[in-house]
């Protein structure tokens, strides 16, 4: 449990996650008010990482539900283990058990697989449930999830109502691939993570890529920050900055010049269109 906003900051920093006041407040509120935290923002700004770091900081398990198109309740919640059930039916066949007995037998706890959501609700102590990229799931799943998160209990016909043993810290992430229903948004504490400030990004680079010298780190972060001011199809994110920094270290680069940037800029920019746009301006974009 986090006792204050400052404690959120300190504990996450101890887990190598550098957070600003705005985000720390949202995390603090979500945990204390027991509300799901909906994190939105561009790709690679540390949404998923925040959930992971929070789990470590709270010294608890992280249960991850990765969303994708077509994800349904059975994959998220609970599923009968058909194979195992079939085997048991066949085995029982050879004995003189009645069908009634077999049926009672195969629909028992032994034969289901708890999926992330059920696991999180049944956990002994509060876990962090990360519902990653919820924007990739479809709307039906969203409303199912909403129901489950409203009072932290779900009714499953075969098992009855399952009430949470402990209320998990729920973190939902989204890349804005689609909009959510108002009902879901109303239910959540909202956090938008934007690209980091120069100072924070510099700190992240120095923390995560210890091999990079101070001057190089400053220059490369300044360069990335300038790129983000341009209109690009896709701006580089923290993950790209880190990849770039690591590459430069591997290449033994001491300081940035046009040629090195030109040769490695494809790590930062994923679209040829963007690369072309930046290519003839590299000189001007490099810090002094």
């Amino acid at each position: 449990m986090f006792g204050s906003i400052q404690e959120v900051k300190d504990k996450l920093t101890a887990q190598n996650y550098l957070i600003n006041d705005n985000s720390a407040t949202a995390v603090y509120l979500a945990v204390r008010l027991q509300k799901p935290l909906l994190i939105e923002g561009p790709a690679g700004v540390g949404k998923t990482e925040l959930a992971k770091a929070a789990a470590r900081a709270l010294d608890t398990e992280l249960i991850r539900l990765q969303c994708y198109e077509g994800l349904d309740e059975s994959k998220a919640l609970f599923e009968w283990n058909y194979q195992k059930q079939l085997l048991r039916i066949q085995a029982n066949h050879l004995t003189d058990r009645t069908w009634e007995e077999t049926k009672a037998n195969i629909f028992s706890a032994e034969f289901y697989l708890a999926r992330p959501l059920l696991k999180a609700l049944q956990a002994e102590k509060p876990v962090v449930l990360l519902v990653d990229e919820i924007d990739k799931s479809d709307e039906e799943f969203e409303s199912f999830l909403l129901e489950a998160l409203s009072d932290y209990q779900i009714s499953i016909p075969e098992l009855g109502t399952v009430k949470a043993t402990s209320i998990p810290v729920v973190i939902l992430t989204s890349n804005n691939f689609r909009d959510f229903s108002d009902a879901l948004k109303r239910r959540c504490i909202h956090l938008y993570i934007d690209y980091p400030s120069f100072a924070r990004e510099l700190a992240i680079v120095r923390l995560k890529v210890p091999g990079v010298n101070k001057v190089l780190a400053e220059k490369l972060v300044a360069f990335v920050q300038s790129l983000r001011k341009m209109v690009l199809k896709k701006s580089p994110s923290i993950s790209e900055t880190l990849d770039w920094a690591r590459t430069l270290v591997l290449l033994g680069v001491e300081t940035l010049d046009e040629e090195i940037v030109m040769n490695t800029v494809n790590i930062l920019l994923k679209y040829q269109q963007d690369i072309n746009k930046v290519a003839d301006r590299i000189g001007g974009l490099l810090p002094e």
Partner: peptide, 12 residues
């Protein structure tokens, strides 16, 4: 400010 924004603004 941060608390108000987190609980009220759900759309960036």
């Amino acid at each position: 400010y941060n608390a108000m924004a987190a609980t009220i603004v759900k759309d960036q």
